[in-house]
Design a protein around this nucleic acid. Structure first.
Lengths: 216, 216
DNA sequence: CGGATCATTGAAGTCCCTCAAGTCCTGTGG
DNA sequence: CCACAGGACTTGAGGGACTTCAATGATCCG
């Protein structure tokens, strides 16, 4: 991969990285930090498409289709590994195993988007929030970010509300219920899950084994 | 592509084609007919992930990740072009331009899933249904299925309800409103859109040009 | 200390859901 | 030929999950 690597980029929290509709000349993989993918509708409402963790690949749509379908923003300080979009094609020609890994990543993303879709369409508010926390915590575990049952979770309640299609108020009250029941505490940027089993049951998640992801 | 083609498959309406969690040895592209991608949650509710039109590729997740994230079912009689899953790898090694097209398809799917997510999360019922009809009609136009403002649309109201996370009853009443306003009529398996502009405005869709899709 | 941002809580309203019938159509069997 | 059953669509009524509006704390920072 070193051959295609252009350099590293460090951005502050709040920095826009990719814009919906743009054709970025650069693609990224996340080395450190967290972020958000989101879309803004013409009525001003925001849909958070996914949370971004280390290891995620950013800009596939621009790289392949020539146009991003969503925007990407840094939630914390992030460091990114930068690639040149124009190299993508030589990628496919000369490094088929890497091209395959790229497609794998796309397939994994698609898989999770399907899960998210099911959440927005079919789960109640408490089920949705439980699902989101289970998802985040599982991902955190596989990234070794969990220590003593806690992991960093630097998002705002508004972010989760926008991710789940709920209002901020209702998101807050529903988080309160999970806290009351001693299932999950989230405050000051850290998430503590006390009873992952029960949380997963509420969330209607049956498979807690994290999905395999290729490394670029 | 002929080299990789195993054969053609014709299935009746209602036939399951791929099952969630399975690792199908076969992949398909749709030559004729329509179908559904869907997931079933443990509480029995169904989320329709997308409608399937001719030209769609089925089984990418099984081909790449080894496991389908959703099921696929035929809504009409369908004829499918069948490929061997084990050929995917040689695909990447020997036909990089085809591998690229495959990844392109994955990226397009991901793009549309993001749109769908925004619909479930941020649009009201009438906006959602208008959005779905605009999407279907646009796709129909680019596939030359539209004649005299009409196109075949062989789904049930329950399918659309499950796709948008709405109840059947409310879906029915909302479709009624669009009919009242002379914007779209859907009955007996055919969809007639009288005023695509206005429908798109309700749906908050600003770009009516259909997305480019590669052909496999 | 004033301003900004985020979290929290109360109250009122509404969009959408569930429950429940009823219609229309098609196919099937007596 | 008619009775009946099943499936999809339609319509009405009532209730509830979630939204919006509004106000208050809490924390941080120039």
């Amino acid at each position: 991969m070193q051959r295609f690597k252009v350099g590293e980029l460090v951005v502050d929290s709040g920095t826009p990285i990719l814009m919906e509709g743009s054709n970025s000349p650069q693609l990224f993989t996340v080395l450190h930090g967290m972020g958000l993918r989101y879309k803004i509708l013409s009525n001003g409402r925001r849909q958070v498409v996914s949370l971004i963790f280390p290891g995620d690949f950013l800009g596939l749509q621009a790289g392949i289709m020539g146009e991003m379908g969503h925007s990407v923003e840094a939630t914390t300080k992030m460091t990114l590994c930068v690639f040149d979009r124009s190299e993508i094609w030589s990628f496919f020609k000369e490094r088929p195993e890497r091209a395959f890994a790229l497609t794998w990543l796309a397939a994994v993303d698609e898989h999770f988007l399907g899960e998210t879709l099911s959440t927005l369409g079919q789960r109640s508010a408490i089920q949705s929030i439980a699902w989101a926390l289970v998802r985040v915590f599982s991902r955190g575990q596989s990234l070794d970010m969990v220590h003593n049952g806690k992991m960093p979770f630097p998002f705002k309640q508004q972010d989760i509300a926008d991710a789940l299609g709920l209002s901020l108020v209702h998101t807050n009250k529903t988080l309160g219920k999970l806290k009351e029941q001693q299932l999950a505490h989230w405050s000051d940027g850290t998430l503590r899950v006390s009873d992952l089993e029960t949380l997963a049951k509420i969330a209607m998640v049956d498979d807690l084994t994290p999905a395999k992801r290729p490394i670029l």
